[in-house]
Computed example of a mutant assay.
Amino acid sequence: HAADAGVLSAAIGMQTLHVLATSVWGGLAMASGLAVLPALGASTARGMLIRTAAQVSNVSIVAVALVLLSGVFNAVRGSGGSLDAILSSTWGHVLTLKLVLVALALVLGGLNRLSALPRLRRTASTMDAHTFVNVLYLEALVMIGVFVVAAALSHSVPAFAALG
């Protein structure tokens, strides 16, 4: 685990960055997708929905970049740089599940950012607003799964330690 490298280590710094950035991304997805944006779905609040959706998307892209950067660092560190360690350890299997969920969240977020949001900005239609909110809702559910798997991962012995 990151703490094994010492309190003032790159491992602790990257793990802290990873947790904070993931919290921003997941928190935005969950708060926006499960509560805020559905409440703004009425046509009278459509302008606010569009502005809020754009802001959520912009902040999320920065958080996602930091999640990916720190996640790669943590995965390489946890596996000891060995793909075999990932493929043959429980830690590696849990990490793989987490990566699949993160990839799904990225696809959903990308779909919203590259397709649904531009269409919503152009048309401001109810159908496009519902599409954006529904895709974000799905992303929020996937992020809940990411957090659950991340909790399991944090309680697993890292691959490099499990394989000796």
Rank of each mutant, 00 (worst) to 15 (best):
A2Y: 10
T96S: 14
F73I: 12
W91M: 14
L37A: 02
S125K: 03
S9Y: 00
L153V: 05
L69V: 12
T22I: 07
V24Q: 02
V157M: 13
G81R: 11
A159G: 00
A140H: 03
A161I: 10
T96H: 11
T16R: 08
L141Y: 05
R122T: 11
V157S: 06
M48H: 11
V67P: 01
L108Q: 06
S57L: 10
R77K: 13
I86F: 07
V19P: 08
S57M: 13
F160G: 02
S89G: 12
L49A: 00
L17D: 02
E139R: 01
T44F: 08
L83V: 15
E139H: 03
G26R: 02
S82G: 08
V19C: 06
G145H: 05
S156E: 14
A75W: 09
V102M: 06
M127D: 15
L40R: 02
A11F: 07
M14I: 11
A3P: 12
A150M: 09
W25R: 07
E139S: 07
L117G: 01
T126K: 04
D4Q: 14
L138K: 13
N112I: 03
V107S: 01
A152Q: 11
V64R: 03
V36L: 15
T52F: 09
A105K: 02
L49Q: 00
V67E: 00
L97T: 12
V64H: 02
I86L: 14
L66W: 09
A75P: 00
L104V: 15
S70T: 09
D128T: 06
G6N: 01
A53I: 04
R119D: 08
G145Q: 04
L106F: 05
I12N: 12
N112F: 04
M48E: 14
T131N: 11
W91V: 06
T123M: 08
M127A: 14
A150L: 13
M48K: 12
V19G: 03
T22L: 09
F73Q: 03
G33Q: 05
G110I: 00
Q15E: 10
L20E: 07
I86Q: 00
G71H: 05
V157G: 06
A63P: 10
N112D: 11
I12K: 07
V142A: 09
A85R: 02
A21R: 02
E139T: 00
S88R: 14
A11C: 08
L40A: 06
R46A: 02
V24E: 03
S60M: 12
T44S: 14
L8G: 14
M143G: 02
I86G: 00
A42P: 07
M30A: 12
F147A: 14
A161F: 05
V135W: 01
H18G: 09
L28M: 13
G164N: 10
A65K: 13
A29H: 11
P118F: 04
G33T: 05
G110T: 06
L138I: 11
T126A: 09
G6R: 02
G71Y: 07
Y137S: 11
F160A: 12
V67S: 05
V76I: 15
S115L: 13
E139N: 09
L153I: 06
